[in-house]
Design a binder for these strands. Structure first.
Lengths: 87, 87
DNA sequence: TAGATAGTTAGATGTATATCTAAATAATAT
DNA sequence: ATATTATTTAGATATACATCTAACTATCTA
């Protein structure tokens, strides 16, 4: 993923909220949705964007789809951003 | 400026190019425009966005308008982003 | 004061994106 | 098989944004 796309992904407050939530550990969509004031389709859309940017991963477990943070990718993104801002 | 707005400002490649260019020192628009493949109005638009986010400043000097990087604000932005990504 | 130079502002256009409702898919339970 | 639960996909809408050309403003110079 390009830096532009990563920064764009991070620029949305709802998506940052999702990442924050997933820092507590992997969890299904229904749990992520708790205390987010958006519909499930909208949440699904944001999850898709984060996934396309590799910031999160998902796996199915029964009826649920469990999302988890890709910590290493987030770290790499942080590196890239720092590298740009501080260089 | 909010983190969302700052990240959004940074998510555009042309705007990052402008910031990169201004790291070399303050300069007029005409110089920033060198080796950027966009029209002056488009450049002006990007400068305006960076300015609204306080990442750069400008002053008039005769016919020219000199832009300069607000290093402290860029540093603060870096801090905010790190604070979010690493927390 | 007229013309040239440096940039911005106005207005139009096309594309991207955040959001919603409704419909579809997948897995489980009855 | 049917209904229920969990989530995604489709389709519509409204807003934001990057870009351009044309017109404007400000400054300097002849």
């Amino acid at each position: 993923m390009s830096l532009s796309e990563t920064l764009s992904a991070l620029s949305d407050k709802n998506r940052r909220h999702i990442l924050d939530t997933l820092k507590k550990g992997e969890m299904p969509v229904s749990l992520i949705a708790k205390d987010m004031d958006i519909t499930l389709p909208t949440l699904s859309h944001h999850l898709d964007i984060l996934k396309r940017n590799k910031l999160i991963s998902s796996r199915r477990e029964g009826q649920q789809i469990i999302y988890s943070l890709n910590l290493s990718v987030v770290e790499e993104a942080a590196e890239s951003i720092m590298k740009f801002l501080k260089k």
